[in-house]
Simulated scan of single mutants.
Amino acid sequence: MITIKSAREIEKMAASGAVLAGVHKGLRDIIKPGISSWEIERFANRYIAEHGATPSEKGFEGYKYATCVSVNDEVAHAIPRKELILKNGDIVKVDMTVNLDGFESDSCWSYAVGEVSDDVKHLMDVTKKALYLGIDQATVGNRIGDIGHAIQDFVENKNHMGDVRELIGHGIQPTMHEQPNVPHYGEAGHGLRLREGMTITIEPMVNLGTWEISSKMTPDDSWEYYVSADGSLSAQYEHTLVITKDGPKILTSQDPDFDAKYLL
């Protein structure tokens, strides 16, 4: 069921989103060559708790952690690991969901580790731009397909990269995964019509090579995660947003100057 949020609910979701954005801002100083991906998990847990919130991913379908930390060709849902030491040139994606007073927010960000290649910089730039092109289509009266078409056209036709199909955005609140599904591919003018008060995530995942992905299991067979099928590098950016009569408004912004036109 798709729920239309009240002004109060949106305000509460924005407060949750501010906590989540704070984690991502803090990670800019944490992520560097020589740390383990477990240090990302530890920082996120501490920051979320200090701000009176809880990590929604912990305990979801048996997941044990506050964050998903996916490195290089890992597309999504990889676990934080003490033995995984980040090195110069890596790209790391940190995805997490925060609950504050019963209100959810969801965001993923890609981080360059030390000095990265031109390919990594270009991949990150394209993926972030794709996110905002999708957000620009999230207006009252547009359709879900308008979001996906804008992302797919930019990623595949204009930049010849792989636009992941299997993992998609979604509605959010009262739980972290609600209807509607929000694919990052599709046909303009098709799909569910967007209405004022809907809250969704847009979260394109882009591979340098093929759009196809493969699943892998952790060594103890306790968790499934995804890698690019051809071993190419992957990036992801995600925001939680609300559809308003004044356009899409981002609830997980890390940069008020950059996102000025998207703020409540």
Rank of each mutant, 00 (worst) to 15 (best):
D136K: 06
P80M: 01
R193K: 11
D259A: 08
R8Q: 15
T175A: 12
K121H: 03
A15W: 04
Y47T: 10
H51V: 00
I250D: 01
M176D: 03
A7N: 14
S37V: 04
E57P: 07
H170E: 07
N142C: 06
K58L: 10
L241E: 04
Y63C: 02
I31C: 07
M1T: 11
G186N: 00
I40W: 08
G247R: 03
R28V: 08
S107W: 03
Y47Q: 10
G114Y: 09
D118R: 14
M13A: 10
L208F: 01
V242Q: 04
T201R: 02
H177T: 12
G197N: 08
L192A: 05
H160P: 03
V242A: 13
G59S: 11
H184Y: 02
S232W: 10
F103W: 13
L133W: 01
V227Q: 01
S214K: 12
H184I: 02
A130D: 00
D163V: 09
H184K: 04
G102L: 04
M1F: 11
Y262S: 05
G34I: 05
G102D: 09
R28N: 10
A44R: 02
D221R: 15
I151N: 03
P204D: 10
H177W: 12
Q179P: 07
A260R: 13
L192C: 03
S234D: 11
V113T: 01
S16H: 07
D257K: 09
S105V: 04
G162R: 04
D259W: 05
K128F: 04
Q152I: 04
M13W: 06
K158D: 15
I168D: 12
V120A: 12
K245L: 08
S70M: 06
S117W: 10
A49I: 08
Y63L: 02
S70L: 03
Y63H: 09
S36L: 06
R8Y: 14
A44Y: 04
D246L: 03
V23T: 06
I30L: 03
I147M: 08
S117I: 07
K216Q: 15
F43D: 05
I151Y: 05
G209W: 12
L84G: 00
A14L: 10
V69W: 05
Q173T: 09
A7K: 15
D73S: 13
D146S: 08
K82M: 14
S253Q: 01
K5T: 12
I243C: 03
H51C: 01
I168H: 14
E104I: 12
I85R: 02
S234Q: 10
K216E: 15
I172M: 11
Y225I: 13
E166Q: 11
F43P: 07
A15P: 02
K64N: 13
T127W: 04
K93P: 01
E57V: 13
I250S: 01
C68H: 14
Y132L: 00
I91P: 02
N88V: 06
D246H: 05
V120C: 05
A7I: 10
D163M: 15
K87V: 11
R165C: 00
H149W: 12
G52H: 06
C108T: 15
A7H: 11
Q236D: 14
A112G: 11
M161N: 07
L84H: 11
D95S: 15
D101T: 00
G89F: 10
A188M: 05
K64M: 12
N72C: 00
Q236V: 13
L20K: 02
G145D: 05
P180A: 14
R42D: 12
P183T: 10
E196P: 00
I168F: 14
V94H: 10
